[in-house]
Design a protein around this nucleic acid. Structure first.
Lengths: 333, 333
DNA sequence: CTGAAAGCGCTTACAG
DNA sequence: CTGAAAGCGCTTACAG
């Protein structure tokens, strides 16, 4: 591979000048710039980024940690992050943690080894010690998106989970539902707690506090299906179920079908996230939409600003939207 | 950050010895190894990987290029790749190309700039010039998985698309279907051509060649829905539709529902890929399952072997399975 | 088994 | 506007 030396030779200048022509073209004369450009073409030069990174003590790589890459919820967030990152000359490394602390640790280890300049966490399911330790070093910024820690204070980009949930529940109450159950994500997850608070408060506000009934799931299809069966198989079943993810809501739809319970006639179901599939299930799902692309963009902007030493808003709250489709309606008389 | 010099100082040896203790512990005495180990702990040393990579002229990074990260089909393949890569000390950079040649080019550019050691392509939708150029340089290996090029000969890990499709069609024929349509992915995609060949040949073998009817989709929900409507809205509609992806099959399910056509009573639908969702749609989808995890593992193994200068099998064909669920049945009498 | 030294390919004060 | 030189943090023949 040709190096910067070859270019300097071909252009009849020093390597310093070639380097400047590339990084600070305004510091180089027009004529030199042109000679360097054609020399680069001539020898087929591409800068060795490892060498540049070593010299500049940066990697231009941002890691984003996900709980599960197979969840389509994250793809649009990643697109938003990449858009901003690429534009700033950074690349993003996607780290799938799969609830495995060893995996998370391996990704955090990219920081001290100079392979990553910062991390965006899309999950709170990370060993707290890792986060605290990395945060304390303070030479590599950490940003949280979608989720948050209750006990570590990182710059965060989220929606208002409390409000979004309360709004969905109010909608169900307004339809006339009096028995509204919920299937939560992991109950120790802070966003699930927020949602459950919103759920309870909205029920109370509607005079329905005694109907509160929360089951725990894990955001996946299967847990929605299983908890749906449990919820619907009993004697006095709910007339509506609010789920913390679309996948779980779709699992509930399957459970209802299996038990011969018609949606929305005999059961209303609300999901969360508005994944692509929510428009193609039967019936189409009413769900809470998060501005995923924007969450990704903002999170990356925040991280890059931190890297640039600029001040950032520590809590950004983006707005959600309740998308009413066909899985909700008035309860049977 | 402490460097190898700090460790050498603390251990009372040279940096060369520290380096060896890390990379080739067997070349260092027990006592030294121990002193180095505790010195590393003491000073909190983590090697600067950019420096190491520069020196070794490698990046220990493999890029994988996808057509669309939001398609859950790829996640299990990625898991397989990461498993093998991490074990060998490599990391995987996921490149979402989104049918944008500029994106693909940016990822290919990681090769000459020493940011990646090789690329695994999970899509054939890449400007041919890029691939040819990268392949010609021959210092960074390219491996193809799932798809393949008809005109560039890369080591490839695939299934037998012809056979898998023929088998699915034979199954529909054996059920008694005489009008079997298909919704293909992009028709210029080699795997879609293979599948269409398998489809036609199986129809011919069943004495049904005149029923062949192929519509073009793009693998996504929406195109399946639209082509499904087109196929089902006419006078003499098919009694079965074979789709090149589960998402399109699920789109067809929606189209049928909308037209009041019952599945499987009045229409049989077969998908391809066995994504998680195929078990949660209504009805559960009959589909062709690919060994996704294994495809990912094999593709990465192949690439790492190439990197190590070892000989590799240039075409690996893994087996598929027709998973019969509830979206297929005998046609109405 | 160990160390001195060169060098990987860049960038960047410094001097002119 | 340009160049000589130092140095980023490693690794690895080479010599002992």
């Amino acid at each position: 591979m040709p190096t910067i030396k070859d270019v300097a030779l071909a252009a009849g200048c020093s390597t310093a000048t070639v380097s400047r022509a590339l990084a600070n073209p305004e510091k180089v004369s027009e004529a030199t710039r042109l000679r360097v450009a054609s020399a680069i073409d001539e020898v087929g030069y591409a800068p060795n980024v490892a060498a540049r990174n070593l010299r500049r003590a940066e990697s231009r790589t941002i890691v984003t940690l996900l709980p599960d890459i197979s969840n389509p919820f994250f793809s649009e967030i990643i697109n938003g992050m990449e858009e901003v990152a690429h534009q700033a000359g950074y690349q993003v490394l996607i780290g799938d943690c799969e609830r495995d602390p060893a995996r998370a640790e391996a990704y955090f280890n990219l920081l001290p080894t100079n392979q990553a300049d910062g991390i965006i966490l899309l999950t709170a399911d990370i060993p707290r010690g890792l986060v605290r330790h990395a945060d304390a070093r303070a030479d590599a910024p950490l940003v949280m998106a979608c989720e948050f820690f209750s006990d570590v204070d990182l710059p965060t980009v989220t929606i208002d989970n409390y409000q979004a949930t309360a709004h969905a529940i109010e909608y169900l109450v307004s339809l006339g539902h009096a028995r509204i159950a919920a299937i939560s994500g992991p109950v120790d997850n802070p966003i699930c707690r927020e949602r459950t608070r919103g759920y309870r408060d909205a029920l109370t506000a509607g005079g329905l506090s005694s109907s509160a009934h929360v089951m725990e799931g894990d955001f996946g299809f299967r847990s929605g299906y299983q908890q749906g069966l449990a919820l619907l198989d009993g004697a006095d079943r709910p007339s509506a179920i609010f789920c913390h993810s679309d996948e779980m809501a779709i699992g509930v739809l399957k459970a209802a079908r299996q038990l011969g319970i018609r949606v929305p006639e005999a059961l209303s179901v609300v999901g969360f996230d508005n994944i692509g599939f929510s428009e193609y299930c039967e019936p189409e799902l009413t769900t809470v939409s998060q501005p995923r692309h924007e969450i990704g963009q903002q999170a990356m902007h925040t991280l890059l600003n931190l890297l640039a030493g600029e001040a950032v808003v520590r809590r950004q709250t983006l707005s959600t939207q309740l998308i009413v489709r066909k899985s909700t309606g008035r309860p049977a008389a």
